[in-house]
Simulated scan of single mutants.
Amino acid sequence: MSSADSRPLAGKVALVTGSARRIGRESALLLAREGAHVVVHARSSREEIEAVAAEIRAGGGRATALLADITVEAEAQGLVDAILGETGRLDILVNNAAIRGEKPFTELDLAAFRAVYSVIVEGAFLVTRAAVPAMLKNGFGRIVTIGGVSAHSGVSHRVHVATAKAALVGFTKALAIEFGAQGITANIVVPGRIGGTRSRTSGAGGAFPGGGYLPVGHEGAPRNVAEIVRTLALPSGDFITGQTIHVNGGMYLP
């Protein structure tokens, strides 16, 4: 491994929300490998985020594990305040936290709809709003938000998820316009079918048009998505902003 000073994210601090497992975990590991001090986050999975942080440290990186319910304004702000108190900066934000689940539209009540929307959209808003002032102060920021293919292709039994993920596209474009001239980029990465063990909130993936046919012949892995997150987070990603980048093996073709 190259020395820390030669790694492109040396001296940067990254927060990856919902990074106990899968895409969040892989993103945290890859950003740490590039030299970032990574804050691993979950709402309640203390043991899992501590394990991810320990893995980063075992590889010679720097990591902090923090719990917060990012749907609560005070906790979202407190999460960022804790990072700034420890490190003095926050340069990269990966909005990955989400809950999903499946339910036929006629059985979907407002409470279930709001539960999903709150984590995916309001959580991203609250953490980003808390993080942006630190990015503006340093004249550098990378905001990478994890979207969902259901927002683009449509899907049965996941109206709440598709709606929330679609909102993230507008959120990202607005951030890109407002802060591009100040050194902050904002992009959304949209996974397709990603294999591996899913969390209890993920559901079975919904009924996508065409049955979710994959031209490449296999599901993706969390690392496939995390690699794009890493690319967008690098200093060299400064000319990519406001973009929706699909990582789906050809499942959905814009």
Score class of each variant (00 low, 15 high):
residue 136 L to S: 04
residue 56 I to K: 05
residue 213 Y to K: 15
residue 39 V to D: 09
residue 229 V to D: 04
residue 184 I to R: 07
residue 100 R to N: 11
residue 253 L to K: 12
residue 81 D to Y: 01
residue 14 A to E: 10
residue 64 T to F: 00
residue 63 A to P: 03
residue 219 E to T: 13
residue 58 A to C: 03
residue 76 A to C: 04
residue 139 G to S: 05
residue 29 L to R: 14
residue 41 H to T: 02
residue 231 T to F: 14
residue 220 G to F: 10
residue 199 S to L: 13
residue 238 D to N: 15
residue 19 S to D: 09
residue 222 P to V: 06
residue 223 R to A: 13
residue 9 L to Q: 09
residue 143 I to M: 07
residue 126 L to H: 03
residue 56 I to L: 06
residue 178 E to C: 00
residue 94 V to A: 04
residue 97 A to Q: 11
residue 192 G to N: 12
residue 140 F to H: 03
residue 244 T to K: 07
residue 207 A to R: 14
residue 13 V to K: 07
residue 159 V to D: 10
residue 60 G to Y: 11
residue 12 K to S: 12
residue 20 A to P: 02
residue 192 G to I: 11
residue 231 T to R: 13
residue 93 L to H: 07
residue 118 S to M: 09
residue 169 V to Q: 14
residue 106 T to V: 15
residue 234 L to T: 07
residue 206 G to V: 05
residue 140 F to T: 01
residue 135 M to C: 11
residue 149 V to I: 15
residue 77 Q to S: 12
residue 5 D to Q: 14
residue 176 A to W: 12
residue 181 A to H: 12
residue 126 L to K: 13
residue 92 I to K: 08
residue 41 H to Q: 10
residue 133 P to I: 02
residue 61 G to E: 11
residue 221 A to S: 15
residue 172 T to A: 11
residue 246 H to Q: 03
residue 27 S to N: 01
residue 109 D to G: 13
residue 93 L to C: 06
residue 54 A to R: 15
residue 61 G to Y: 11
residue 186 A to W: 05
residue 86 E to F: 00
residue 196 G to I: 12
residue 9 L to N: 07
residue 173 K to A: 09
residue 189 V to R: 09
residue 213 Y to E: 13
residue 228 I to H: 06
residue 85 G to T: 06
residue 164 A to G: 13
residue 49 I to W: 07
residue 69 D to N: 15
residue 15 L to K: 04
residue 250 G to Q: 10
residue 112 A to E: 14
residue 242 G to Y: 09
residue 17 T to R: 04
residue 193 R to C: 00
residue 249 G to A: 10
residue 180 G to W: 05
residue 46 R to G: 01
residue 141 G to N: 06
residue 209 P to C: 04
residue 89 R to Y: 03
residue 170 G to A: 08
residue 51 A to P: 01
residue 240 I to G: 01
residue 169 V to G: 00
residue 39 V to L: 14
residue 132 V to H: 03
residue 217 G to M: 04
residue 132 V to R: 03
residue 137 K to C: 00
residue 29 L to C: 07
residue 52 V to P: 12
residue 167 A to V: 08
residue 167 A to T: 10
residue 71 T to P: 03
residue 252 Y to T: 05
residue 187 N to L: 06
residue 219 E to F: 08
residue 173 K to I: 01
residue 206 G to H: 09
residue 101 G to A: 08
residue 23 I to D: 08
residue 191 P to Q: 08
residue 49 I to N: 04
residue 233 A to L: 00
residue 207 A to S: 15
residue 222 P to N: 10
